[in-house]
């Protein structure tokens, strides 16, 4: 992407160089390794959340048998005649098959978390989550698109290069699998895909709020807190603090749009990441969307520089492996 030529070619060359630096400059995969652990735990929690109701939802006499889902998908409001929603859970609705598939899904998620055959377990985890999503798309929520998006990009990454069983197996025990790794181009491509997609995700959330009147009028937080079967805390006391409701509502929209635009600025990044903790924590209590809010916080970690992650890991590791001082008399 580095052409040569006259004066007009210079902006093109600059853009090409910037594009190459942005997407292809090798980088440390520590952030991706941390994301692998946290996303592995998220997949584990997601698959495990189906355990109690596995047969209730997916068996032949379940709430959503295969035929019903296929009928509803074929007759969707969008009128799409062909549906590309492949799932291994369509192969059979026998309880024994469902339990075996479910157990396999849990094992795959555990393998991703600890970094065991990471490349394979990462792709397999994506297949597992997509299978649950496609088996019953009508009961999926806000969490699944974010989880599948992060897993998809993790598949391209060397996320088992450190803090994993794979790394531990490759290196001597002396190195503890925590030796600083060399730069990886695939790590940069993967993390950039996550960052661009996530910032677009924030913008989509912000602008979709502005498509209605309640976020403009400042009432949205009240209506979220008024859902008595969803909220985690009683928010009725807010009727005495309508200005606070207005402020909170506007701050949510401002934060989401700001995050999508300003996260690329190094001075704003740390402020936005710190604000995100408060914002998603409060939204979890307000809406009861615990999984989604937790996953948003995890996804935000793709903007944390690898050196920060590495220093945190190594500080923690040193603390646990430092020999006890000899007892003095």
């Amino acid at each position: 992407m580095t052409g040569s030529g006259g004066q007009l070619a210079e902006p093109g060359e600059n853009f090409g160089r910037a594009w190459n630096r942005f997407w292809f400059q090798p980088s440390d995969p520590s952030t991706l390794a941390l994301l692998r652990i946290l996303l592995g735990l998220s997949v584990l929690a997601y698959v495990y959340s189906h355990t109690a109701d596995l047969v209730v939802w997916f068996a032949a006499d379940g709430l959503l048998p295969r035929e019903t889902v296929q009928q509803l998908s074929g007759a969707s409001a969008t009128g799409q005649p062909i549906v590309f929603r492949w799932s291994y859970l369509y192969l059979s609705d026998a309880p024994s098959f469902l339990w075996i598939a479910h157990l396999a899904g849990l094992l795959v998620a555990a393998a991703l978390t600890v970094g065991w055959y990471t490349r394979i377990s990462c792709v397999a985890s994506l297949v597992v989550v997509l299978s649950y999503v496609h088996r019953a798309p009508m009961i999926t929520g806000l969490t699944e698109p974010l989880l599948t998006m992060m897993l998809l990009y993790l598949c391209f990454a060397p996320c088992g290069a450190c803090y994993s069983l794979d790394a531990w197996r490759r290196r001597s025990l002396k190195d503890h699998g925590l030796r600083a790794t060399e730069g990886w181009t695939s790590a940069t491509v993967s993390i950039r895909l996550m960052q661009v997609h996530l910032s677009a995700f924030y913008l989509m959330m912000g602008f979709s709020k502005l498509a209605g009147t309640t976020w403009w009028s400042g009432e949205a937080v009240w209506w979220l807190g008024a859902r008595t079967e969803s909220r985690l805390l009683g928010w009725t006391f807010l009727h005495d603090y309508l200005l606070l409701v207005n402020l909170w509502t506007h701050l949510i929209v401002l934060f989401e749009i700001s995050f999508g635009l300003l996260i690329w600025n190094r001075w704003c990044r740390s402020i936005l990441l710190a604000t995100a903790v408060v914002m998603w924590g409060s939204l979890a209590l307000l809406t009861g969307l615990l999984g989604f809010c937790a996953l948003m916080l995890i996804a935000n970690l793709c903007f944390v520089p690898p050196r920060v992650i590495r220093s945190l890991f190594e500080a923690g590791f040193t603390k646990f492996t430092r020999p006890e001082p000899a007892a003095t008399a």
């Binding site: 549906v83 492949w86 997509l130 989509m204 209605g212 309640t214 979220l224």
Partner: peptide, 27 residues
């Protein structure tokens, strides 16, 4: 759709707005 649906990229009207206080936005 073979790409967007298969990879779950098509959000398919997921309520990321959280609420517009419409009759769908209740329990």
């Amino acid at each position: 759709a073979f790409y967007t649906q298969l990879l779950n990229l098509d959000l398919d009207f997921a309520p990321y707005h959280l609420t517009h206080a419409s009759e769908q936005d209740v329990d």
